[in-house]
Every structure is written in structure tokens, then in C-alpha cells.
Design a binder for these strands. Structure first.
Lengths: 191, 191
DNA sequence: GTCTATAGCGAGATAGAC
DNA sequence: GTCTATCTCGCTATAGAC
């Protein structure tokens, strides 16, 4: 990787972290400067505005999500194992998810209010995950329509749990509720 | 109501609307000034800072929520009717809920990241609703523990639906998913 | 490609007349 | 209690040296 690309990536990672932990509007350009440890001018050289950084961050999240889903596809042969793997990944991230909410959900909530462009970008991450979930349920033997319903339901509940757990700042609520989601995977078809 | 109180209320209502539609950090003091139609100095006379306005807005939401729940308690005798009324109120508000998300959920998501005080204030609105839901399920014959579970589940799903519907900007997803929630009320006990 | 310096604006908050 | 005028600061963005 070229030096410029490396710098760009470090900026994206720093911004990604701050947008997640503080929110987009609360995060100032100077916060990113501090976090990444380079000069303000240098960052502006790579991204001409804060909105440009935001776009890059969301693109980065899209790519990262693709990677993870592909890895799961490669590592696990069975759809139910994959789905449980998805759910376990929520448990693994419970500390951050409880403290800051879902990275994609909270960003979408914040930006969706005012910014149509970024709402559509967030939309893409959501689609990736929904489609992947739907594909797994399809492999489990559900009909196309049922699989979509299951995927949407599982996803919706995951988002809701993140909101509630954050409000109550309670990892136990998070873990308990997420474990309930496992029933959605193991339930009998047409039940 | 005294004149000062009236003015205070109009400021709170304007801020409430803007915090909902734009988010807290995106809403500038001057936005509130424009919305309420009074001078900047006058607003500062009633609330010395933006954070003060925020606190008042949340208090206002708490009181408003109490009012609504009390009204439902008075107007409907049966717990299942009350619960359906809650769900129908979501359908009624689907346009705004899809466009801007849940007022309490999105505010909590935004503020919970950084501000412990306001996270706890949001917490109060959530508790009111959760407790009320739990009370209704208790009246339906569920055990105390089951009633709490049902309430949390219903609430969690409602929040998740708001997030998804906002991301996709799709009122149909919203209405469809919310209608699914009615099953939680009419399901047989211990099912 | 990275830096320092600064421009220009709008934010939140204050002072004081009426 | 409401207004106008103003202050100060921190924000995003730009210019130009190295």
C-alpha cells in the first residue's frame, strides 16, 4: 500500500471510531486531527471536507461488512451455524454496542433526519446484512418470502436491543435479549 | 397560565420539534430562535443555555408521556385494548416515525454516546412506557416475570422497527412490522 | 505529501436599553 | 419580560511554505 493510501486509511479509521463513539455532529474536525495524530492541513489534503470523510467512513464500513460476511461464508458451511455466528458476534461486541449503540444504526438515525445522501449510504450496509441473513434462512428451507421476513425480524430486533441496552447502559439486558434471538434460528419451519 | 410560563412552553415546544426533526447537535440556538419567533435574548432569559433547553424538553416529554398513558388507562378498561391502542398509536404516527425515527430512541442514541445526565433523563421516558406495558401484560394474566419480558420484547421491537423504517424511509415496512406486533398481544399465554 | 498559519464564519452566551 | 447589539470562541476550510 502506498504511503498516501496508508494515511487516508488511518484518517478513515480515526473518524470511524469518533463518529461511532461521539456521533457525527458532535465530532469536530479538530477531534479527528487529534485522534489521527497528523496535522490539520494534511487531513484536508486527503479529504477536502468533513462530509467527504463521512462518505469515506461509510464506504469503509460497507467494505468491512462485505469482508466479514464473506469470511463467515467461507468458514462455516451450514446456514444455521452462520446465523448463530452472526448472533454471537453481537454478544462479543456487547460492551461497545451497549455503550455506544449499533455503529450503523446510530449513524443512520442521526444522519437520516437531515441528510438524504448519507441515509442512502447507510441503507447499503443495512441491505448487505439483510440480504445475507435472508440467504441463510433460504438455505435453511424457508420460502423466499419467509426468509425475508425472518431476516427483517432478526435485524429489527437486533437494532431495538442496541437502542434499549444503550439507554439502560445494561450489558445484561443486551446479552439476555440477544440470546433470545437464537430461538429464531432453531425454531421449526412454519411454526 | 402566566405569560412567562406561556413563553417558556412555546420555546420548549419549538425546541422539542427541532431536536426531533434535526437532532440535538445539528440544531443551533438560532434555529430555535427562528422557530419560536422570539428574540435570542428573550430565549436566553428563560433558559440560560442550550443544555437547559434540552433538559426542559426531556422533562416535557416525560410529562406528556405520563398524560397519554393516563388517558389510555382512563379511556379503556381492558388491558388488551390498551395494548392495541399503544400499537395503533405507532401506526398513526408512522409518517413522522418513518421520517425521523422514534423521538425518544433517536435522542437517546445521540445523547447516550456522550452525555450521562441526559441518557438518564431519556431513561425515565423509557421506564414509564416499559412499566405501563408490563402492567398491561400482568393484567392479561402473565406472571410478573413474563409480563416484563413481553413488555421489553414489544418495546425493543418497536424501537428496531423505527430504526429500520427510517433507514429505508419506507412507511410500508413500518406498518407491516408494527402490525406483526399485535400478535404479541393476542397470543395465548405460555405459548 | 506534510506542515504552519490564518481566514471567515457561525456557534453559544452576555450586556444593557426599554 | 422582551428587545438589540455585541462578545468570544471554536468550527470548517483555505493558503502557502517546505
Amino acid at each position: 500500500m502506498k504511503q498516501g493510501e496508508q494515511t487516508k486509511l488511518s484518517i478513515i479509521k480515526a473518524a470511524n471510531k469518533l463518529f461511532y463513539q461521539q456521533g457525527f455532529h458532535k465530532t469536530a474536525f479538530s477531534d479527528i486531527v487529534k485522534e489521527v495524530g497528523l496535522s490539520k492541513g494534511n487531513i484536508t489534503y486527503h479529504f477536502k471536507s468533513k462530509d467527504d470523510i463521512l462518505t469515506a467512513v461509510i464506504e469503509h464500513r460497507v467494505e468491512r461488512t462485505k469482508q466479514i460476511l464473506t469470511t463467515w461464508d467461507q468458514d462455516y458451511a451450514n446456514a444455521d451455524t452462520r446465523l448463530l455466528c452472526f448472533i454471537d458476534s453481537l454478544i462479543d461486541g456487547k460492551s461497545a454496542l451497549t455503550r455506544y449503540g449499533c455503529p450503523n444504526g446510530t449513524l443512520a438515525s442521526e444522519l437520516g433526519k437531515s441528510n438524504e445522501l448519507t441515509r442512502q449510504l447507510s441503507h447499503r450496509v443495512f441491505d448487505l446484512i439483510r440480504q445475507w441473513l435472508s440467504t441463510q434462512f433460504l438455505a435453511l428451507g424457508y420460502s423466499s418470502e419467509q426468509a425475508n421476513d425472518r431476516a427483517l425480524d432478526l435485524f429489527t430486533r437486533g437494532q431495538g436491543i442496541c437502542v434499549l441496552a444503550q439507554v439502560y447502559n445494561d450489558e445484561d439486558i443486551f446479552e439476555l435479549q440477544v440470546n433470545h434471538l437464537k430461538a429464531l434460528v432453531s425454531e421449526k419451519i412454519n411454526s
